[in-house]
Amino acid sequence: MAQAHAQPLARGFADPVHEGQAVFRAVMEALSRPGRLRPLVTALAPPAPLTPELAALALALTDADTPVWLDAPLGANPAVAAFLRFHTGAPIVDEPGRAAFALIADPARCPAFTAFAQGSLAYPDASATLILAVATLSDGTGLAFEGPGIRGTARLDAAPLPADWPSRLVRNHAGFPQGIDLLFAAPGQLAALPRSARPLIPEA
């Protein structure tokens, strides 16, 4: 923690009410229309490797009621946990299974979805939301999806992601209504894949 105190704490939202609302509305729109890219602009300058977009989503969605799990690169810099604790009050947890939100700076090494809370059949809402900081997002290529919020089909490609990503998404959707929901934050952009989105895997 001495390291965290050595550098000044990065600022949160300049206007927490309206910036928080704007980020939430972007998430709501993204989740309602899976695969569609939305702008996500923020002036935050959080400690690396927490990206500005990841920080904006954390500040808008998490608080003392939502345990947050950090992946290894985020956990390696104590300033990240200090920043999140100060601005959100969210408890940072070590076990991914206890988290309501997981912040992932290295999506290529994203843990198995089943490591996170899936909810139960009676309470499928008691499940985790994974927020991944990706380098690129595209809605013109990649896997095709159909389901609620999608007119016809939608495509979404993000990088970097693990090689077994399509099969993870298939298994996650197969467990519906249980499962996890995914938010993708690229520089200036946001997209989402709720568990209801069905990946269309071409027959091998």
Partner: peptide, 11 residues
């Protein structure tokens, strides 16, 4: 807002 997001994910 978090309840709304879960509601959207589980129509």
């Amino acid at each position: 807002r978090r309840a709304i997001l879960k509601a959207i994910a589980i129509p």
